[in-house]
Simulated assay, not measured.
Amino acid sequence: MSAVRLLVLGVIRKKQSAHGYAVRSELLSWRAETWTNVKPGSIYHALKQLTAEGKLSTYGTESSDKGPGRTLFALTEAGESEFRALMDAALVSVDMEELGAGIAFMDALPRAHVIEKLREQRRNSAAIRDELLAMIPSFPGRYESPHATDLLELWSGVFDNLSGWTGSVLARLEAGEYRMSD
């Protein structure tokens, strides 16, 4: 899954239509470059690719005093379906960039659906943590190959933290915090 695709579709969906510079400006205002690999070139590439795939449509240009007119994009039905599919994949992902993109737009979905997906993501994180911890006894001791055990402990800690963080978000969702699509 491409977090950039989800971010581009999500911003255009949120704004109902936008040009590339507006998408870029919105993502910069969120400081998305600090938690994703989104770059200006990847935004414009995603716009071109999504349009070629029929996920976005163009419907005119917005004039600009600072240069040529800017092409306006809107989601198509296929784009809405792509957004939903990418959201479902992102919300269960243990990849930080993908999950972050999903969290950024979770308010676009019904509360119960997001809760279901994040419960699945929490189970995935806990399962990975448990698998990593279970490997430790079979690895050489710290003095024979110290990095192997340390790496397993590092990554099991990362997934333990992710599982705990997801639990906190779930508790807030279940308590009725956040405005959701329903």
Score class of each variant (00 low, 15 high):
T36P: 11
R31V: 06
T36N: 13
P40W: 00
F83G: 03
T58F: 10
L47N: 03
T34S: 11
G54D: 03
A32E: 05
T76N: 04
W35V: 03
S64C: 10
E53H: 07
L47W: 02
W30K: 14
R84C: 07
G67T: 01
I43Y: 00
E62P: 09
S64D: 14
T61K: 15
K48G: 06
G67Y: 03
R70H: 13
F73D: 02
K55Q: 15
R84T: 09
S63T: 12
R70I: 03
T36C: 11
E82W: 01
L86C: 05
S57H: 10
Y44I: 01
L72R: 05
W30T: 04
K55A: 14
Y59E: 13
E80D: 12
Y44A: 06
T36V: 05
H45W: 12
R84S: 15
K55F: 08
S64R: 15
S57F: 08
V38G: 07
R84W: 08
E80K: 08
R84N: 12
V38R: 05
P40C: 02
A74H: 06
F73Q: 03
A46D: 08
G60T: 02
L28K: 12
A46L: 04
K66P: 04
W30H: 11
R70P: 09
F83R: 01
Y59S: 13
D65A: 15
P40Y: 00
W35E: 08
A74S: 15
T61L: 12
H45E: 15
P68W: 13
N37S: 13
E33Y: 11
A74W: 01
L56V: 00
S64Q: 12
S29K: 07
E53W: 08
F83N: 02
W35I: 04
T51F: 10
G60P: 12
W35G: 07
G79S: 02
T71W: 05
G67H: 05
T61R: 14
S42H: 09
A85G: 07
R70C: 06
A52D: 15
K39E: 13
T61Q: 15
N37E: 14
T58E: 15
T58A: 10
R31Y: 13
L72Y: 06
S63F: 12
Y59I: 06
D65Y: 11
E62R: 15
A52N: 14
E62F: 10
E77V: 00
E80I: 00
Y59M: 14
L72I: 03
R70T: 03
A52H: 11
I43C: 01
A32C: 09
G69Q: 09
W30D: 08
H45I: 06
T36M: 10
L75H: 01
G69M: 07
